[in-house]
Amino acid sequence: MTSTAGVAPANPHETATKAPRGRKLTGYWLILPGALWLLVFFVIPFYSLLAASLFDPKGSPLTGYDMTWHFGNFVDAFDQYKGQIGRSILYAGIATLTCLVVGYVLAYAIAFKAGRWKNLMLVLVIAPFFTSFLLRTLSWKLILADDGWVVSAAQTLHLTNLLNLIGLTSTDDRLLATPFAVIAGLTYNFLPFMVLPLYASLEKVDIRLIEASGDLYASPIRGFFKVTFPLSLPGVVAGTLLTFIPAAGDYVNAQLLGSPNTRMVGNSIQNLFTSQGDYAAAGALSVILMVIIVAAVMLYVRTAGTEELV
């Protein structure tokens, strides 16, 4: 089309070629708001963060920071905060797995067993979002308080001993200010992000495929693992990503439900930025976290191989 227009500009075809070009431009106009949004709220902050990560660490918010390509920030930040990074990945990983198990059962029940209660149950899943994240987490602080009934019940049932045994709580029979509380908080707060994509993907599973697997000698359990579960993999992948990524960067749960010994990398970044004003270390640590998460996600998505299901 375009070459014809170039060869014969006076050609009556020209008018015909102009119309589609106008339409092409419409496409670009439609992209514009989104592109601007991304530029202002993603690209610029990202560059700002990247620049901060390369600041001369000798600066301060008062004396100013200079960007000196100080790549050593990354080494220093990683070296100093590898404990928190490892803890974040561990806590977020356990929370994501717990969410997956709990969320899968729930999503499965809603998709296949809820019948006319389906919509109500979906509303209940997102109901926690009606109150603020902070308030919900704070109320867990009340629920798990040392003198509260949850702790005394857990003690009576020797659950605290069990948790102590696997190292999720400290040795003095409490729940709050322990890794358990932080992981429980993460699990609770991010569960809906797991359930909704799982539900969306289970809902799409053709019930006839499950019948077919039964017809082909698969018991319900084997049918689940051979048919239902593989078909819900896109939801599993989406759900685990939506849970793991924010959980790994979260600092509210560790702040409110944890102790000084359960700080996550988000707490360190927040502390570096706001209290210490160490923009260089804060920027470097943020970039490190981002790189680790992006790498992990790429590896994970490649391994899970969801593109084959599309």
């Binding site: 560059y47 700002s48 620049a51 600041f55 600066g59 918010p61 100013g64 920071y65 960007m67 923009y279």
Partner: peptide
Amino acid sequence: ALKYGFNT
């Protein structure tokens, strides 16, 4: 941009 855009 990184070098000159974000110095404080």
